[in-house]
Amino acid sequence: MTPEPRDPSLAFTDVRRRFGRLRVLTGVSGRVGAGEALLVSGPNGSGKSTLIRILAGLLAAEGGAVEYRLGSRVLDIAERRRAVGYAAPDLALYEELTTLENLEFFCRLRGAPTGRARELLERVDLPLDRLAGALSSGMRQRLRWAWALLGRPQLLLLDEPFQNLDPAGVEQGTELLSRHLDAGGLAVVANPGPLEIPRVRSRIDLGRGLGR
C-alpha cells in the first residue's frame, strides 16, 4: 500500500492549453512535494480536468513544462503516464468483466502481483465477482480509487475523487489519501468546490469557468 520512498516531486510551469478558439488554461504553475497535496479548484469549465489530464500525460500541453521527478531522475511523458495513479470521471473499466477480472488485467499490464487486485477491492468494500457494468455510480467511483492505487504510485492525480460517493465512501477515500500522503506520496486533487482533505500545502484557483 505504501509507496516506495524515492523523494518524488511534481512541478509544472506556465501550462497552457486551448481547444479551438477556447482558451482553457492560460499559464498555470504549481509544485507539490513528498507528503503533500495540491488542491485545484474552480467552477465547471475552468480547466481542472484538462490540467489533470496534462499532468497525467493524457493530453499534450500547448506550452509550458511538466516535470515529475523520482529522486534525481526526471520521468519522460511515457514513463510518467505509466507511473501515476489516476482517478477521474473519464476513466472507465470493462463492463463485461468483473471488478476482480478488471483489476487483475491491469495488474498484469503494470507488472503488479495479481493479489493486489483482491486486496484493493476488499479495501474499498467492493464485491469481487460483480460485473463492472452492473455497478452503481458510487461503486464505480470506488473502483476508480482501487484502480488508481493498483501500481503503488507515488503520484496520485484525482479529478473529483469524491463524486457520487456516500459518506462512508468519502471517509474511505479520505483515509486512503491520508495514508498515501503519510507514506511520502504526493497528490494533485481537482474539485469544483471546497474539499476537506489532509496535508494541503498549496492551492490553485482556476477562477472563471464556462464561457471564458
Partner: peptide, 13 residues
C-alpha cells in the same frame, strides 16, 4: 467509445 482507452493509455506499453 467506452472510455477504457484512458486506462489502457496509462497502464499498457
Amino acid at each position: 467509445e467506452t472510455h477504457t482507452a484512458t486506462a489502457l493509455r496509462l497502464a499498457a506499453t
